[in-house]
Design a protein around this nucleic acid. Structure first.
Lengths: 112, 112
DNA sequence: ACAGGTATATAGTATCACGTAGTAGCGTCA
DNA sequence: TGACGCTACTACGTGATACTATATACCTGT
């Protein structure tokens, strides 16, 4: 899927929150998981800007651990504020998602 | 629903395309319809930047008509390129929507 | 004359994903 | 040893978009 950049705004951060909420993970791994999900064009730089933002907004706890496969990894876990933010995110998503499907359904029905 | 600005990026233009596709309409009316849909915080200025963009990208045909309720209205209809763009939009939406629901469903199931 | 609803336009701002580049550690294989 | 590839993080600049605020203008009813 190409050129979905604009539509990912606000969504990608929620995805990252969700992924972190499932257990301690780090930037590089998050990127891989997003790609597995289907967002194949997401690059590392994008994910790091998001994780840095999460740090800045104090939504994650951080632990640095060494790795045998390269430089040290920064592991993230959601803190209470992060959990709350994640719930807010899904709330927003459900809202928009339902409105959009409403619009689309009415389209199909040719209504109003 | 507050602060969904970022999540509307890329989506709002699609909504406007969809609304126009249902029949000739103009900026002010599009704003009203978006509000009825549930996007209550959308203001005229936002919609006009979108319609101007649609004009610039030659996705709409324009006809100016007088009104008994105020200044002349600029009526828009989708042309072929606009129709195509609308289909592309729904394609993108379906893609992201399905991925997000996948992510959310796995969350509920507590899976991977 | 004035207020209020209708209607369009635009300059400036903030936010976000992206592109690109740079730094660096480790393993493999020739 | 040296080149390469994978892992891993950081930083800077860019482009697209929705939002804010403001200006302009037309029409109707009082």
């Amino acid at each position: 899927m190409e050129n979905i950049t604009e539509m990912l705004k606000g969504v990608l951060e929620g995805c990252v929150l969700e992924i972190i909420s499932r257990g301690e993970t780090y930037g590089y791994e998050i990127t891989q998981q997003l790609r597995e999900l289907g967002f194949t064009d997401v690059v590392e730089g994008t994910v790091y800007t998001i994780t840095m933002r999460l740090e800045k907004n104090n939504l994650v706890d951080i632990e640095k651990k060494t790795s045998t496969k390269g430089p040290p990894r920064k592991f993230y876990t959601l803190n209470a504020a992060g959990q709350e933010q994640l719930e807010i995110f899904w709330g927003k998503w459900d809202f928009i998602s339902s409105k959009m499907n409403e619009l689309k359904t009415n389209k199909a029905k040719g209504e109003k």
